[in-house]
């Protein structure tokens, strides 16, 4: 059992008739950023909360470095978690919020100011939490998670409410932490952001595992290749020149969307027919497309 590895096996949570998480098994490796994706209500938050012993599973187990969270000798030293942005007393200052946690964990009090500095919150440290923007709340959450300099970081929708600069800051921070050998597990809705940030992805829907692997394997795993976009002043002639395997649909912006053949075949057909081409691109499938195809029809209210 390697240090910092997260192992979830057969994990289940039932609320009356709803299976929020259904026999979920996966591992998350240290030294990598793992994106945890799923439609609303897929069971992401419930899974993370079971991993942290905040919610009791109805079946299966979840361990971090081979132990249940509650059995870790120094939980905050080992695991840092950001579960929701609005989780401090509204009337307490951000700095005092961290002091409360430091005292309970037995960490030296000066760690508080170091972490405020790390997340760039020093000027707002003595202001009350109710005056914080969503972005500042996320930063305070990160500061809280980093108090114990943990080996494992678990973040639930950390990019929510961050501005573009904040998102970039978060991306750089998480990438650096993973490069230092830490385990970073991030749930998110922002698929383009995940494509840039994550090394591995886990996709769940309806509480069940849909797929699990590196970003490129998951994206390339979609059966059919990408669509070819072609722009030409003589659309009908080009369509007629393409061979029978090709399906041509007119795109909204006047371009043709061709599936069934690849870009070189479209180019060759255009040359043969003597049709002028203004644009010829293969639209590579991305994480968003993979996600939508893999989870289509599985989202929604249960």
């Amino acid at each position: 059992m390697s240090d910092g590895q997260i192992v979830i096996s057969g994990l289940s949570k039932r609320y009356r008739s709803v299976r929020a998480v259904d026999n979920l098994s996966l591992t998350v490796e240290p030294g990598r950023v793992t994106g945890f994706l799923g439609p609303n209500g897929a069971g992401k938050t419930t899974t993370l909360r079971m991993l942290l012993d905040l919610v009791t599973p109805t079946g299966g187990s979840a361990t971090i470095s081979g132990r249940r969270y509650a059995d870790l000798t120094q939980p905050l030293r080992h695991v840092g978690a950001v579960l929701e942005a609005s989780s401090a007393h509204r009337g307490r200052t951000g700095r005092n919020h961290l002091r409360v946690i430091c005292a309970a964990a037995g960490f030296p009090p000066r760690r508080v100011d170091e972490m405020l500095h790390l997340v760039g919150l020093t000027p707002a440290g003595r202001r009350k939490f109710k005056g914080y923007s969503l972005g500042m709340r996320q930063r305070l959450g990160i500061a809280q998670a980093m108090l114990g300099d943990p080996k494992v970081l678990i973040l639930d929708e950390p990019a929510n409410g961050l501005d573009p600069e904040g998102i970039r800051w978060m991306r750089d921070l998480l990438t650096r932490l993973a490069e230092e050998g830490r385990t970073v597990l991030v749930s998110s809705h922002l698929l383009s952001e995940m494509q840039m940030l994550a090394d591995d992805v886990v996709i769940i829907a309806n509480g069940r595992l849909v797929t699990h692997g590196t970003v490129s394997t998951v994206v390339d795993g979609i059966a059919h290749p990408g669509t070819v976009r072609a722009r030409t002043p003589d659309a009908e002639k080009l369509a007629a020149a393409l061979d029978a395997d090709a399906t041509v649909t007119p795109g909204s912006d006047g371009a043709l969307l061709v599936t069934g053949v690849d870009a070189p075949a479209v180019g060759a057909a255009a040359l043969r027919a003597g049709v002028e081409l203004h644009e010829l691109v293969t639209e590579r499938p991305d994480l968003e497309r993979a996600f939508l195809e893999l989870t289509s029809g599985k989202a929604g209210v249960r």
Binding site: R77, R99, F107, R111, D149
Partner: peptide
Amino acid sequence: VSTAELDRARAGALGLIRSELLKIRT
């Protein structure tokens, strides 16, 4: 704060009571 200092940190009963008192004072 060094990592060694963090490693040594233990959550004792006194720390927890201090934390609860801080919650009220703040």
